[in-house]
Design a protein around this nucleic acid. Sequence first.
DNA 1: CGCTGATGTCCCCAGCAATGC
DNA 2: AGCATTGCTGGGGACATCAGC
Lengths: 353, 353
Amino acid sequence: MRASARARGERAAQVSANGGERGRVATIFDVARLAGVSHQTVSRVLNDLPNVRPATRERVENAIRQLRYVPSQAARALVTRRSRTLGLVAAGLPDFGPSSIVLHVNESAADAGYAVITTTLADALGPTLRSAAEMLIRQNVEAIVLIATERAALDAFDGWELGVPLVAVASEARGRALRVTIDQYRAARAAVSHLLELGHRDIRHIAGPAGSMDAEERLRGWRDRLGEAGIAVVDPPRGDWSPQSGFDLGTAMLQGGVPGAVFVSNDQMALGLLHALAEAGLRVPEDVSVVGFDDIPEAAHFQPPLTTMRQDFVGLGRDAMAAVLAHLQDEQSTEHPEPRPSQIIVRSSTRAV
Amino acid sequence: MRASARARGERAAQVSANGGERGRVATIFDVARLAGVSHQTVSRVLNDLPNVRPATRERVENAIRQLRYVPSQAARALVTRRSRTLGLVAAGLPDFGPSSIVLHVNESAADAGYAVITTTLADALGPTLRSAAEMLIRQNVEAIVLIATERAALDAFDGWELGVPLVAVASEARGRALRVTIDQYRAARAAVSHLLELGHRDIRHIAGPAGSMDAEERLRGWRDRLGEAGIAVVDPPRGDWSPQSGFDLGTAMLQGGVPGAVFVSNDQMALGLLHALAEAGLRVPEDVSVVGFDDIPEAAHFQPPLTTMRQDFVGLGRDAMAAVLAHLQDEQSTEHPEPRPSQIIVRSSTRAV
DNA sequence: CGCTGATGTCCCCAGCAATGC
DNA sequence: AGCATTGCTGGGGACATCAGC
């Protein structure tokens, strides 16, 4: 079909004629023309394929530099069916946990040569999630990573054929999504163990919101560990992660007497609790021991510096990216990686009784 | 050219023959075939163009639903040269300020129907920025939004033809980038005015790092406002935004005596300062007044609750997106929007002397 | 002949302009 | 005039083919 070839040639000629035109960028044909080879040879150079003579390669590379040629991702995506792009769906920003995960998934993706399209959601309702996912699919993402704090978010994706792999960062295993996770349950048990080892028996809990899987796992860890120690518990109050709710629930808790220790489901609520305790004239850790969760940057400078659980968000980001890549290479790989362990950071808000 | 049309037809036939094949997605031709129209008619339906009979439109829409057809963004981008995608370059995460800006730019972009590819940077060095920007260009973004905290980041982009509009979120006007901003200078002046009105004269400052434009503007506001009040100042100590640096610099500051009031360049360092003051047995606000900057969610529950400057990140995100859209529609529009004003939040860390 | 290095053709998928009924 | 169709375009990769030694 010579007509086609000629059309290409004419176009290329036009381009070199008005190369100075604003906004016009070089194509692979322009490069080929300048280097005196076919566009296919340029393609081989671009993709590091064999069968290109070093001298030819050199010429092509010079032409690329000269024209400041950048391959069109759109054209490449069209033919390879690979966009080198990931979708990231995150609700619950700007909390420390989700934000950190987003940050580190981004970093791991960049290392793997992937771009990340992030959609932040105000709520985790089905329709919202659905339209976010559809937008990502339209943008041609190769996989979707879902930062799921609420159970509802995970459920919304279930029984819904996306067409691309779904990796969920979540603390419960639900649905068919590939899951990467931090072991919140064991971390909560470790926090309670720390208090038990200090001799505490009256260990209360301020939990996170009901829909949150993280909150649920931390609550379960607290309950189970106390149960094993032969200590009966009642249902704990639930906050919304905010310092204000920690303050309110802490104030309410003090109405019924002074607890020996409190395990709080995140650092911000722990801060609110510290505030409530200070207002009530109670000293930490002399009167009450407090353990938080997350190890936010501020925690080391609370009054007193907070004992808390530090999570491995960096590792989690890597796990998520590894899961994506594994699934992209091999559809069958449904191996869930080991949950990432957490680490207790003992500061000055806990002490032995 | 009938050959071409026939090739299309054959391909379409193949598709419907193995429609169950894994990973194969429907194209506009499959839809056209099922609806008994040409692909162009489908295109008109997709783009809400006139000249489609309601009955035809109906048939096409049914076919789209039936095949779960999603237009290929890659193909569309190739022909329209519009990717509906924005690039966002952010250094300095996960600090509260930059994180908030990223979040709200994302939201505003989503409202405008744009996807956002975010790249997070470990440092703001030239080569890092450059490769980040190149990656975004390859991904075909229509514009780049740069969250620039450091002056060096802004300078790195200068004199460098990107090929796409650049919008900088930054507190200094540098280079040719379109700029949106929060007026840090006026905000700092307001913070100092608050202390002056309370009768303070000995008003110190703990500044942010030297390269930071935000830190510089806040420092300048503090210096100028005090100068106007006839109060001489010396160069303030500089932290790195972290609570630890606030603690260290606060401790050092107390070696030279107890100040009347301190204006701290961000809330986290203010927290460190509160910690240092508490350790020295000083009371806030009885002995020392403290004003922070940012109004992070924790600030209301510091001990004591912190007086601080709240910035309008939501508005800033909208400004950034508006600037992008304006520039995309009209290359000449280089109007910088008015800087967003900030608001003082008076809590319990300041009081009259 | 057999291998290396380079070329030609078709295809990916959607939108636009011109055309046809 | 209203509605639908045909042909071409965009940038680059896969594959088959070809030239040279």
